[in-house]
């Protein structure tokens, strides 16, 4: 038995919108502690990890660990039918007696917050997905940058009109985003800035040692679809690891995107 009740339906809509273009099919893993997902993109260059803790739901019941394979575009289509303030309650009551996961379904109910007499029920087919789960150990990063998510999104968008890759360098000077293309080059430097009116507008740079890595802008731009989830983004860089671009989901968890760098052949 799985029962979830999420009063802020827009949150789940935003989560699906942020990952559906990167990952087609994924297993949602449910346990007593929460709802999680880990999936690679089809070229195995990027990985998304989602966590929604059980405490963040108004109601959460998961009797035993289960994995629900979903087509994320189909799930996003269904969630588009929900109003931003609708209450969303996905459930999977038949799990215990369903012989094969491939023929089972998830039921999703949207309850309109304004008209209590309007209830919409959807049923979506689940898929049998043979996905591999990668172990991501806790790691020390050479530099961690926290900045406004809208600023990061703007930089990625602007640079991608000039080049295909971005070099992210953290030095004492700040964090530098550089690209080059046929028409020329572009450099954007963000310095640490904590003297702002609101904490979410700050740029905070923690640097243990300078680091410089090259990434495909196409993926970075895809990650920025998570911008509506959080006012800030955290970018963790290490010369030995994929970059981690993290959007916190208020009081519930996070969406983390891991991207392998471009390396010298």
């Amino acid at each position: 038995m799985l029962e979830l009740r999420l009063v802020q339906g827009s949150l789940l809509k935003k989560v699906l919108e942020s990952i559906k273009d990167l990952v087609n099919d994924a297993n949602f893993d449910c346990s007593a502690t929460g709802f999680s997902l880990q999936a690679m993109d089809s070229s195995h260059v990027a990985l998304v990890a989602l966590l929604l803790r059980s405490e963040g739901f108004e109601h959460y019941r998961c009797d035993r660990n289960m994995s629900m394979g979903m087509n994320l575009n189909n799930m996003a289509k269904m969630l588009k039918c929900a109003g931003n303030d609708d209450i969303i309650t996905p459930s999977r009551p038949m799990m215990a007696v369903t012989p094969s996961p491939s023929c089972s379904k998830v039921q999703v109910r949207f309850t309109c917050c304004f008209a209590q007499d309007k209830i919409a029920d959807f049923e979506m087919k689940l898929m049998d997905i043979d996905s591999e789960h990668l172990g991501i150990p806790e790691a020390e990063y050479h530099a961690i940058v926290r900045m406004p998510s809208s600023e990061f999104s703007r930089i990625c968008k602007d640079l991608s009109s000039i080049g295909d890759t971005v070099v992210i360098s953290v030095t004492k000077e700040g964090v530098r985003f550089s690209t080059r293309g046929d028409i020329g080059t572009a450099n954007v430097v963000c310095r640490q800035n904590t003297t702002v009116d609101k904490p979410e507008e700050a740029t905070i740079i923690e640097m243990n040692e300078p680091v410089s890595l090259t990434f495909a802008l196409r993926y970075m731009n895809s990650f920025t679809k998570a911008t509506p989830l959080s006012n800030t983004v955290t970018i963790s860089l290490s010369s030995e690891l994929p970059v981690v671009v993290e959007y916190k989901i208020a009081e519930m968890g996070y969406v983390r995107f891991y991207l392998a760098p471009k390396i010298e052949d």
């Binding site: 195995h44 260059v45 990027a46 591999e132 789960h133 172990g135 392998a260 390396i263 010298e264």
Partner: peptide
């Protein structure tokens, strides 16, 4: 020449 690394180069299967 730069080549695109894969995620599996860094993280192993659980």
């Amino acid at each position: 020449i730069e080549i695109q690394a894969g995620i599996r180069y860094y993280y192993g299967k659980v």
